[in-house]
């Protein structure tokens, strides 16, 4: 197991953003973390990388290749074995040429050759290396990020919303690069709000809503409504244009109990309770008391 996270709770100034989160990524696996905006996806990525703002408190257990990911360990592996593919070009230095940023400041021959090769691999002309970040198009910027992630030998890649603003073919191309990284043996965590994209490319999908995991399941389960168990995931499935384009009246997750309390037709008194256990059913882990299956603990 490359990354193993258990009982993660993230809070800011005593407001809980993410609660009782778990995540396991094996070598060669591509896991998609799907959720609406404001469900706490980016803060999770930033907490793993240790680049979240100082008032963000992350509690719980994070293990990287079997060992706890401590501050000292982070210093050794971040940016080398664990890499973040950020959301937009504001993460690049606007005053440094792109080629040098990908080389991470190194100027020796071997590094420069590697940069040139990576640029070729991702269909970018060598002149792109001499450009500044603002001169890149959206798609080019993504490829620059991917190239810079591959400068080292990443074991774990965390991609934070790698595709918004890109059209479908381009998005699929970007995702295929992550697939390639997984095939090279890395574990990939892709954070996105685009469920359809996740269905196309991921092995495992984790659905997050209101800071809580609703369901973790295989990507294949999304092919039919019957293999999904949580009412929220079912609602997501039905909201797809090809599956009827249904809608619900809920606009915001409820703060106490199950976040999908107001939108669920089967909600009971027990759903109001703050602690809802996880249940395992076939290949899915569901946080719903109505789902059936075996109760599990992490």
């Amino acid at each position: 197991m490359i990354l193993d996270m258990k009982q993660i709770t993230i809070s800011v100034n005593n407001t809980i953003l993410v609660e009782d989160f778990f995540l396991q990524i094996a070598s060669g696996e591509l896991v998609a973390l799907v959720g609406a905006s404001g469900s706490g996806k980016s803060i999770l990525a930033h907490s793993i990388m240790g680049i979240a703002p100082k008032n963000v408190v992350c509690q719980g257990e994070i293990r990287y290749q079997g060992e706890p990911l401590t501050k000292e360990k982070k210093r050794d592996v971040l940016g080398k074995e664990i890499v973040l593919v950020p959301q937009n070009i504001s993460y690049l230095d606007p005053l440094m040429k792109v080629g040098r940023q990908v080389a991470k400041g190194k100027k020796d021959k071997i590094s420069m050759e590697k940069v040139t090769k990576l640029f070729q691999k991702y269909n970018m002309h060598s002149s792109v290396m001499q450009r500044y970040p603002h001169m890149l198009s959206g798609g080019m910027a993504r490829r620059v990020f991917i190239a810079s992630a591959l400068m080292e030998q990443p074991r774990l890649v965390i991609a934070d919303e790698p595709t918004p603003g890109l059209h479908k073919e381009m998005a699929q191309m970007v995702v295929s690069h992550f697939r390639e990284m997984a095939q090279m043996g890395a574990g990939v965590l892709m954070i996105t709000h685009d469920l359809e994209l996740a269905m196309d490319c991921a092995d495992k999908i984790i659905v997050l809503y209101g800071g809580k995991i609703m369901e973790q399941t295989n990507a294949k389960s999304f092919q039919s409504e019957n293999t999904l168990y949580h009412p929220y995931t079912k609602a997501l499935w039905k909201a797809m244009p090809q599956n009827g384009f249904h809608t619900t009246s809920v606009t915001h997750p409820s703060k106490t109990g199950c976040p999908f309390l107001k939108g669920c037709t089967k909600s009971k008194k027990e759903c109001m309770k703050n602690i809802i256990p996880y249940f395992q059913k076939e290949n899915s882990i569901i946080r719903c008391i109505d789902a059936g299956g075996k109760e599990i603990c992490f």
Binding site: S37, P164, L195, A235, F245, T251
Partner: peptide, 13 residues
Amino acid sequence: TMLDLLTQSQIWH
């Protein structure tokens, strides 16, 4: 494009 599926369908409806 920046919305999740449920919000997308709500807003379109």
